[in-house]
Amino acid sequence: MQSIERPIIALDFPDASTTRHFLAKFGPDAHLFVKIGMELFYNAGPDIVREVRAAGHDVFLDLKLHDIPHTVEMGMRSIARLGVAMTTTHISGGSEMLQAARAGLDAGNNTRPLLLGITQLTSTSEAQMHSEQHIAGSLAADVVHRAQLAAAAGCDGVVCSALEATDILTATDKEFLRITPGIRPANAATGDQVRVVTPAQARKLHSSGIVVGRPITQSSNPVAAYTAIKQAWNLKG
């Protein structure tokens, strides 16, 4: 898989009813690719994943597991049984934890979800990395190092800023996914994101897939916003 043609919509909603209302705007045959993260999952639980999948949508379950290897492995076994397309764990947990995450997904009863490692959050600046994480060097170099660690441990790709996607492609291979949040249309507010690009820029920077939340979910016309972002993302050249 070299590219995910549908933008992944981040369903960052507080409850199931708000989620249902939003998805209904797209009609019954939309077949979206959506991300369910902590806010929605912690409120609505596994049932919202099953409901969204039953409605015909693909789910990226973004819970960013980070714990001792055994706990992560058991958590991933449960996630695999939900039949999601992708899920996440923090690369900073180390190789043993990443390998345990992969083992947990392999042991699930359904088709194995793709495993993505979290590199550095797109809300993190290089200055923060230096002062708060005590990591020297450039943020880009740190992200590439984490991506290589994830690849060696059996991950299928990483979540990163599009600004690092080209370097990760060079350091890994074309099948290793580079899923990029921090996507904003031109002139849109960046919110709490620091490392931000447009959908068209993400394509040129070799992102494998883009995650877009507020520019779609908070739009007065979410369907039109999604369609415009999808067109920009898939524009070749």
Results as ranks from 00 to 15, higher is better:
residue 95 S to Q: 14
residue 99 Q to Y: 05
residue 100 A to V: 07
residue 100 A to F: 09
residue 100 A to K: 09
residue 101 A to K: 05
residue 101 A to M: 08
residue 103 A to W: 03
residue 105 L to M: 05
residue 107 A to C: 06
residue 109 N to A: 14
residue 110 N to S: 11
residue 110 N to D: 10
residue 111 T to A: 10
residue 112 R to K: 15
residue 112 R to D: 03
residue 114 L to Q: 10
residue 114 L to C: 06
residue 114 L to H: 04
residue 114 L to K: 10
residue 115 L to H: 04
residue 115 L to Q: 04
residue 116 L to W: 02
residue 117 G to R: 00
residue 123 S to P: 02
residue 125 S to E: 09
residue 125 S to T: 15
residue 126 E to H: 10
residue 126 E to N: 10
residue 127 A to R: 13
residue 129 M to W: 09
residue 129 M to A: 09
residue 132 E to M: 12
residue 132 E to K: 11
residue 134 H to N: 15
residue 134 H to F: 15
residue 135 I to P: 00
residue 135 I to A: 08
residue 137 G to W: 14
residue 139 L to V: 10
residue 139 L to A: 12
residue 140 A to L: 15
residue 141 A to W: 04
residue 142 D to N: 12
residue 143 V to Y: 02
residue 143 V to C: 04
residue 144 V to Q: 03
residue 144 V to I: 08
residue 144 V to S: 04
residue 145 H to A: 14
residue 145 H to C: 11
residue 147 A to T: 04
residue 151 A to D: 04
residue 152 A to T: 09
residue 154 G to I: 07
residue 155 C to M: 05
residue 159 V to H: 00
residue 160 C to Q: 01
residue 160 C to S: 12
residue 160 C to A: 07
residue 162 A to E: 01
residue 163 L to T: 09
residue 165 A to L: 03
residue 167 D to I: 03
residue 167 D to P: 02
residue 169 L to W: 04
residue 170 T to V: 13
residue 171 A to F: 06
residue 171 A to N: 09
residue 172 T to C: 15
residue 172 T to S: 07
residue 172 T to F: 02
residue 172 T to D: 10
residue 173 D to I: 07
residue 174 K to T: 13
